[in-house]
Design a protein around this nucleic acid. Structure first.
Lengths: 229, 229
DNA sequence: ACTGGTTTGTCACTTGCTTGTCAAATCAGC
DNA sequence: GCTGATTTGACAAGCAAGTGACAAACCAGT
């Protein structure tokens, strides 16, 4: 269950937000002024913060900056009274992830907070893998070798991904065909060899002597991220 | 024998699935609406679930989430009417392991369910065995002896696996030929001796005095994991 | 114990299948 | 229809399974 910290001095709005997020099964903590907000943030480290910029005590802006400084990955959604363009720029400078102007629709706020959390989650765990002198960025669907990007086709990438996900395991051609090519296409098993050949040519230091994409005679292939030397 | 829970309101599809999986010797349980599905899941804890997203009663989505929450390791394959990409994302958020769009090919569904079960099993336990100073990793298809990997060919590995699965039993050459080599190939029984010889050379401390791969004169061979000393 | 026949251990060689690799054919997206 | 990706087919090369020969071990009956 995710936890949300609401920092808002207006008791009415605070109550509305509390209900809104409780109904969605979030764990909600509240604070009504800056200093208290900072303490609550520091002690509970919530998964997201909803922050009213106009606060008594510690300024909302300062608080936003502090939060983002101490935990850049925690999404902060700002509540702002004015819908000023200049304000929008300011928010970005503060490091806020999104903003909603009062009066706001609860559902919109909910959606924005959830979206911000999704983005944050995705950014936190940027799926990546590396082996030898190759780095694979799954989000960008590209491999980088010695700093230079390697052009991989969609199929090659799917195969590479499956190899990485099943590192060390011996994978039969049938298994590869099923999982990488899909259940509805039935190419010959030679196709697998060819695709592996491509990966070797593009990613192995010496394609003729593969150390990562190893063949297991009579069985299939095995991907070895860290070959013994 | 593995058990499958089919949660599907369409009686026709339900029957098709039942036949399909019964033919493959699965134990099939069925439910035709959400609440009933949840009860069946909770009481029978099946090895895999096939779930139609469009259900009367408890929503299929909610049910999927609940199942995954209470038992993350149980694979759930979703039946979906729409082949929407956005839907695909949704499914992953629900925690489903795979999905098949209607109309579907029974064989494809079977393949996907089996693949999901394989993956789940793989994640749960890495099948391994050990005897003497040898460790056998079935997924990697390799044996490790005193930390050093031992190269085994596909056939040698199949033979080794059969020995391990039938430890202590005396296995005749005919039995070995049938089970390890297959029913369609009939090499001479000398072949078996040779293959056993290879295993001894690679895995015994003293190949000339085998303690694990013992010959039973006039009968065949016996694998002894823990020899008396 | 001895002996002969049978079974098994072991090795080198052959054969056959598996795989690497390339080029041509086919397919898919623009 | 063009372009790049994918698949197929052909051929060569490599590896491992299978075979047969011989020696050693084993067993049974004397």
């Amino acid at each position: 269950m995710s936890s949300i910290l609401v920092i808002e001095d207006d008791a009415g709005i605070q109550r509305v937000l509390q209900r809104l997020f409780l109904a969605e099964h979030y764990d909600v903590k509240t604070a009504s002024e800056g200093k208290q907000g900072w303490d609550a943030f520091a002690s509970s480290s919530p998964d997201a913060v909803i922050l009213d910029l106009m606060l008594p005590g510690m300024s909302g802006r300062e608080l936003c900056r502090s939060i983002k400084e101490s935990s850049p990955d925690t999404p902060v959604v700002v509540l702002s009274a004015i819908s000023d363009v200049a304000d929008k720029v300011l928010l970005l400078e503060l490091g806020a992830d999104d903003y909603v102007t009062k009066p706001f629709s609860p559902r919109e706020l909910l959606a924005r907070v959830q979206a911000a959390m999704r983005r944050a989650r995705r950014a936190r765990v940027r799926p990546t893998a590396s082996f030898g002198d190759v780095q694979v960025d799954f989000a960008r669907m590209q491999a980088i070798r010695n700093g230079a990007p390697v052009v991989l086709t969609a199929h090659e990438f799917r195969l590479l991904r499956f190899f990485i996900e099943n590192a060390e395991r011996v994978l039969t051609r049938e298994e590869l065909l099923n999982e990488v090519w899909g259940y509805n296409s039935y190419p010959s098993t030679r196709t697998v060899d060819n695709q592996v050949l491509k990966l070797r040519q593009k990613l192995e230091v010496n394609p003729a002597e593969p150390v990562h994409f190893c063949t297991v005679h009579g069985a299939g292939y095995r991907f070895v991220p860290a070959p013994p030397r």
